[in-house]
Every structure is written in C-alpha cells, then in structure tokens.
Design a binder for these strands. Structure first.
Lengths: 350, 350
DNA sequence: TTGAAAGCGATACCAC
DNA sequence: GTGGTATCGCTTTCAA
C-alpha cells in the first residue's frame, strides 16, 4: 500500500499547490479579498474546507503582530492557599468569557501565584495577548502602576485609589461598606468587627467606609475594631474562631467579602452563638450563594455582569488607542436575614 | 531633545547588539545552554532582565511548533441561553486552571455556542494549543468521534459511551443515578419524575440509571416518567412549573444536575408544595451550593478536583504520545434533607 | 564557543 | 488579478 493517505493539509502552500495557484492567492481568497477573481476565490475556499485546512494562528499572529486574544490574570498574592475556587473569581470569569467570546477574541487565563516577580511585565512582554484584564489588585498595586506607564491596553477590576494611573472598574467600595456598617449601627449594634486585610486595596477602601460610619457614630461610643483575615474561607474562619476565643464582646461582623462573612457565620455558629440574634453579619459582593446561605446574607451587591462588560468595553477602547478612563459603579446594599429580620428592623428603631 | 528614550527592547537582536554578540548567543544564553560561556551567559541574562526584555512567545511558538497552552472548550449546544454562569462549569474551570498552571502551561478558554459547525476541527487546525480539554459532550458526540480519529491530545469530561473512541473522564453516571433513585424508592416514593434531557450523553446515562432502578422496582408498580428540561436554571424551572400545572401526581424528582434539581425545588415550593414532605428532590454533581441550599440537596457527588487532575494527567500523557485510556471515577450518594431527614429515614423503613 | 543562515507559516508589498 | 519575495522574531543546524 503505497497509495498516499489523504492527510489534512498543514500549510497554505499545500492548498496552493492543490489549487494550482500561489500561496498569496490562497491567503487572499481565504481572507475574502476582492482582489482575487470571484470564481477562483470560491473554488479555493471550497478546497480548503473540504480538506479541513485551517490557517495556522501562530504564524498569522506573528505576521500580523496581534493575537486576537485577551489575557485575564488573577493575582493571588494575598492568598495562603492555592486553588482557584473563590466564587467571586469564578463568577467574574464566566462573565468575562462571555464578553470576550462575543467579540470574537480568545481568552487566555493566567493564575498568578507567589513568587510574583515581574509577572505583569513578563505577560506584557511575551505578546501572548492584545490586552490584559487583571481581576483584583491583590498586593500588586505597584506592579500595575509600573506596567500602566508603558502599556495601555490594561484594565483592572478593583478599587480606585487616589492618584492611581491604571484603569480600574469597580463599585464604590467606600460608600458600599459605609452603607452596610451604618445599617448595622442603625440596628443598634454597638461593637462591629471588621474582618479582612486592609492591605488589599479594595478591602482598604471598604475599611475606610467602615471607619467613616464609625466616625459619624463616635458620639454614641462606638469604636472600630479590626480583625485581620485573608481572603480564603479557611483562613477567615480560623481568624474569626481565634478572635472569638480570645476576645471581648462584639455584636456584629462586617466581612470584607462574602466569602469572609460566610466563614464568620460558620465560626460564630460553631461557637454556639446565633446569627443574627447574638451577632449580625454583613458581607460584600453578593456572590450568588449569599442569597441562599443560612441565614441569607446581608451584603453589598456588585453587578459583575455589568462590571465585566465595562472592563471589556474599556479594554477594547484602549486597544484601539483611546485613553479610556476608570469607571466606578454604584454599590447596592441588599438586606437579608443575617443582620436581622427586615420587618423587625423598623420596630426596633428608635 | 533628541536623546533617545530608553525603550524596552522588542527583539532578541536588540539585546544581541547591546551585548555585542549575535542573536544566536542570546537565544542560547536565555535558554540556559551550557554551550555559551558562563560569564557571558550571566551578563546577557542580566542585561535582558535590566532592559525588561521578554522572549516573544508567538515567534518562539512558531519556531518550536508548540504553544505551551491547553485549550479548554465548553460546548453549549444544548443551552438556550448564553452566559457561562453554570456553577458546575465555573467550578471545573477553577480546578483545571490550577492543574494547567501548575504544569507551566497557559489555559485558553473557548466557549462554544451554536452554530457549532466544525468548531473542534477548527480549534485543532488553528494550532492555538498543544492539547484540548472539552468539558461536557453536550450535543457534540459525533464531532468528538471525528476529531479523535486524527488528533490524540484530546480529553473530554463526560459520560463514557459504548464504542466511543475518544478519551473521557467522568463519574459512573449510571451507578450514581441508580443509587439516588433507589434511595428515593427506598424512602417510599412511588412516582419519581426524571427532569432533564437524555440527548446529552451524561444525562442519558443518568436516565439509564434511573430506568434500571425503576426496572428493579417494577413489581411495586412504579413507573418511570420523564420531563424534558434543558440544563439552565431558568428553562428547568419553567419545565417543572409547566409540569406541575398540567400533570398528575408525583412525589419525587430526580434532577439530571444540581442546577436542574434546585430549580425544581424552587418551582415546587412556589407551587405551594413542600420539599421533602410533599416531594423529595435529588440531584447530581454536588456543586458547592448544594450543601447550603434550602433544604440541603441530596445529590450524587462528583469530585471535580480529582476529575480535573485526571483530565490533565491523561492529556499530558497523550501529548507525550501515549494512548492513555478513559477513566471512570466512582460516584458517591450524598444524603441531605431534600429527600427527607436521615434520622427519620431509618424509622420509616419497613 | 560563536555566528551565519535556514526555516517555522502566514501576509503584503511590488512588479508584472 | 496574480505571483515572487521579504518579513514577523525566534531556534537550531552547520561551519568556522
């Protein structure tokens, strides 16, 4: 059997030979160029389709100096554990995948774990993608600043910091957190623990909102109290557990994220206290699980679908050369039972 | 000011010029080749680092004929709606990202929506990645068969069908579903609705398990009954609602996935019935939300972390030329309150 | 040990 | 309209 097996052609020149034309013509035909005669164009396309030929995107990308792909990077500098299972990230990822796919681009997912030296500059320099979305500033504010100075097509989901030069999309963390904490105070809570790590920019802004709410309520003798906690469920649970064991009294917890707040609920319940009766708990994000938790979690809602759309919209404008600015979306306080029944609330108010 | 601004060098030849050597030498130095003198090697590397030079991966990939990337494709042929928010997918994605990153590969995410002509052959032909993971067979069994005949580095999360030639990883859908349904029968349920679309291979296998359980119980006068439902929460809710409105009696629902089962719970509750008192509900997947739903959902657990590890392990073996076989993992029935309280269960049993 | 040159597979300019 | 050729930026053989 030396009859050659019909392989799928690997190169454009193979198709060219089969069609009796040059590679240039095949390239033009496949690109739909009006330069090549209509009849010949259709024949070449048919041939390519029949033989299962597909343009090699690596070669094409090299030649065209673009990749039709967006990198989505998730820095996990703050995390002690590795796995990418945080529902906030996975939900955001889903929405981003939708937006990016819709524009005909590919999505290149990049988990960034310590040691994180130069990851962003390397990602940029590698030319793997035409633009970069970073989800969460994590510990990487400095790296983002440095990169943004020279690389435009970069957008970040996260907090908008003063004098920051990179482009962010996010909710109004200060206002959102403040509304949540003011709600707790209005409910009569007097010792509200902030659970989270303010070194992460978004969390820092939420802490600022927490602080502002306390400042306004200072005359009522309410003092802020922070319990440091990382962003993973396990570490947050542990931090809360340790705090319960060692500390004085408290009657409310504001978790920097829903994952943290829900971990706090677990720790509080495990210690024999009741949420919301003994301790009211509120979070931030409104991950889809928050509404179905037990008890349902009061939280500050971020519209991730809208956020993803904005990120990608700004990114494409930046890729087109425009100097698209940061955007802040309103945050919405969602009242649920973890801070007390809503109908009871009005009764309790002075 | 005609003093040239020090730009980050774009090409290897720039570094070569700066170092006073040829590009070949730079390439070798950066690759850590022992061929280049140690001192010179270090100097070149230092220079590259200082100037922020990064190897252009597109060019490198073209030359080396590999991409250091894995494509993860999610076919959504069965879905009526678009967004990639299904928790099963996003959880799986997170685990895959972990495994792929760990091996030093990039992850290329590909959502596949109708019309889906030739998507897999095109993905393969484009040479975007060195291997492909497909999550869920959806409607694409034929496409997978066709592709697998010529392309080895392909693995699929899904059901293992008879005489199938592509490599799958998944749980034992028949046994898992059967265990769940037998549990419902043992609880005394006599009219158990199967909610799902058996045209999707995994769902078909689960239906087979459902059918087998019924076959064994046929003498008790228990008849199977299927209600077609797509995989999204909204369509499943609607299907269940319509069925409740139009149909005769039923006292249990087996949902083909947790998303479907939880939608059924919503529809049943909205119709004024109680879960599990009036209707017992079980699902499949054990998505992380299942344990926290109200009531907590009895379901068949798939260990996605282990599944992702297996997928990637098999994929890399196939990329290395090995003909790695399919793998089936055991499924585990998790009893929770949506089928009745477990302590009550033993009491109720004959 | 180093450099010159070929080649990965496509696109686009420039002739014809 | 079509084909030849240079080029994108890198790696690797071959020769020195």
């Amino acid at each position: 059997m030396n009859k050659k097996r019909r392989e799928t052609p690997a190169r454009m020149s193979d198709i060219a030979r089969l069609a009796g034309v040059s590679a240039s013509t095949v390239s033009r035909a496949l690109a739909g160029s009006p330069l090549v005669a209509a009849a010949k164009r259709e024949e070449i396309r048919r041939l390519a389709r029949e033989r299962g030929y597909v343009i090699n995107s690596t070669a094409r990308n090299l030649r065209l100096q673009r990749t039709q792909a967006i990198s989505v990077a998730i820095p996990l500098g703050h995390e002690t554990s590795q796995p990418l299972t945080d529902p906030f990230f996975t939900e955001m990822l889903g929405h981003l995948a939708d937006c990016i796919t819709q524009r005909g681009y590919g999505m290149f997912l990049q988990k960034v774990v310590p040691p994180m030296d130069d990851w962003l500059l390397r990602l940029i320099g590698s030319h793997k993608s035409d633009g970069i979305v970073v989800i969460g500033q994590s510990t990487e504010h400095a790296a983002l600043e440095e990169a943004a100075a020279r690389y435009k097509p970069l957008v970040v989901w996260g907090g908008h910091l003063p004098r920051q030069s990179y482009c962010t999309v996010g909710t109004d963390n200060v206002a959102g957190a403040r509304a949540a904490v003011e709600h707790l105070i209005a409910l009569g809570r007097r010792r509200i623990v902030f659970l989270g790590d303010p070194a992460v920019p978004e969390v820092g802004l939420r802490y600022e909102g927490y602080r502002l709410a306390h400042e306004r309520a200072a005359r009522q003798g309410i003092q802020p109290h922070i319990v440091p906690a990382h962003l993973t469920a396990d570490t947050a649970y542990e931090a809360m557990r340790a705090f319960i064991g060692s500390a004085g009294s408290f009657d409310a917890v504001f978790g920097a994220t829903d994952v943290i707040a829900l971990s706090a609920v677990r720790a509080i319940t495990a210690a024999g206290m009741s949420v919301p009766r003994d301790v009211a708990v509120a979070g931030y994000d409104d991950i889809s699980f928050a509404a179905h938790a037990n008890p349902p979690l009061t939280t500050v809602r971020q519209d991730l679908q809208r956020g993803a759309r904005m990120l990608i919209d700004l990114l494409f404008r930046r890729m087109a050369g425009e100097d698209a600015p940061s955007a802040t979306m309103p945050a919405e306080l969602i009242l649920r039972e973890s801070t007390g029944r809503i109908d009871v609330l009005s009764v309790n108010r002075p």
